[in-house]
């Protein structure tokens, strides 16, 4: 076990735990954001650099600070390590810089993007970015392509997290897409037009942090915040059968895996569950799924509101913001 202090909060975690996962065990605002790391996909992480943190003490044995900010998702803790995330101005400054880099070529076409409302890049920008853009250059564009009849690849929106490549490597029998070219010309592609066609390819959509890979069966059907997510399951011979149905009235508009608090699917689902079962009769519906994230979708208050809990949360926030009053509207719910 290793004792580690993150932003002044101490926690004991098993050896080998990464700083990010130690922070997630603490929870709350001190958890670094992550755009490329994905717990259930081996070897992910380290690329997007939004989870950079400062290690101001390496370990009890060797208390020297680490010379550079480190990717918290890939750096294991050591006993006595002291980490700064939101308490380090350097980290916040670097993160702001990374967000700016990620947005330099991102199309900001949120109004027409299916991912809007549940987009990790939107959240990241809102929480860590700046309000103004300093770039005046034309953004990099690619042609949209269909990789198979169920998935749309909109490369222009891609932030090169590589998660979909790891899905193909780790969940499917043969990877036919990958990262081509180099530098700022890099792209996710099949090189020759080829369908990504196998039982688990749909998970590429769930792991994509932005709107680069979207579900063609859901395309333009609804903004996500107008749909109701419901936990549901069915007996499936290929996967766990545990899904979230995104419903409008009695219609199932799309089916996804169940994402946790950090937007990660722990149990991947097969394409049959995802694409072939859009009738409520096919599913045993559990109940509404709580989306506990900052995204626009979590503003969709279809759940029964626990007024006491809400009051408490607001009080907490008011204290946290040191007297800054929250706007009136945030307390009114329909």
């Amino acid at each position: 076990m290793a004792k580690v202090t993150i932003d002044g909060i101490e926690i004991e975690v098993p050896d080998g735990t990464t700083i990010l996962n130690a922070a997630r065990q603490i929870g709350g605002k001190i958890v670094p954001p992550a755009m490329c790391y994905y717990t259930s996909l081996k070897d992910t992480g380290g690329k997007c650099r939004v989870c950079l943190v400062k290690v101001s003490q390496g370990s009890a044995k060797d208390p020297r600070p680490m010379p550079k900010l480190v990717a918290s998702c890939r750096t294991p803790v050591a006993d006595g390590m002291v980490v700064q995330n939101i308490t380090s101005p350097d980290v916040l400054e670097a993160r702001k810089g990374v967000v700016e880099f990620l947005l330099l070529n991102h199309p900001i076409d949120c109004p027409i993007c299916d991912q809007a409302g549940e987009c990790d890049l939107q959240d990241l920008t809102y929480e860590h970015g700046t309000e103004v853009t300093r770039t005046e250059f034309e953004r990099r564009t690619f042609d949209k392509i269909d990789i198979g009849d169920k998935i749309k690849l909109h490369m222009t929106r891609c932030i090169m997290c590589y998660r979909c490549v790891y899905v193909a490597d780790q969940l499917t029998p043969e990877r036919v897409h990958g990262v081509l070219n180099r530098g700022d010309h890099s792209e996710i592609s099949t090189y020759i037009e080829k369908a990504v066609d196998n039982d688990f390819s749909g998970n590429m959509i769930d792991v994509c942090p932005v709107g680069a890979l979207t579900d063609r069966t859901f395309r333009f059907k609804s903004r996500v915040w107008f749909t109701k997510p419901m936990d549901a399951h069915r007996n499936c011979s290929k996967c766990c059968g545990k899904v979230v149905l995104w419903m409008k009235g009695d219609d199932i508009l799309r089916v996804t895996g169940r994402k946790d608090h950090y937007g990660e699917v722990r149990e991947f689902i097969c394409n049959e569950c995802r694409f072939e079962h859009k009738n409520t009769a096919d599913w045993v519906i559990g109940g509404p799924r709580h989306i506990n994230r900052h995204s626009v979708i979590s503003q969709n208050h279809y759940e029964k509101v626990d007024l006491q809990k809400l009051r408490k949360e607001i009080d907490r926030q008011i204290v946290f913001q040191k007297g800054k009053q929250l706007p009136e509207t945030s307390t009114s719910h329909s």
């Binding site: 690329k47 990374v98 880099f101 932030i159 070219n181």
Partner: peptide, 18 residues
């Protein structure tokens, strides 16, 4: 450096081109 960036991490991929 823009030409030679591997493109794997965002600051280098985007920053060198910018």
């Amino acid at each position: 450096y823009r030409h030679e960036s591997c493109g794997q991490c965002s600051p280098c991929r985007e920053g060198t081109a910018w």
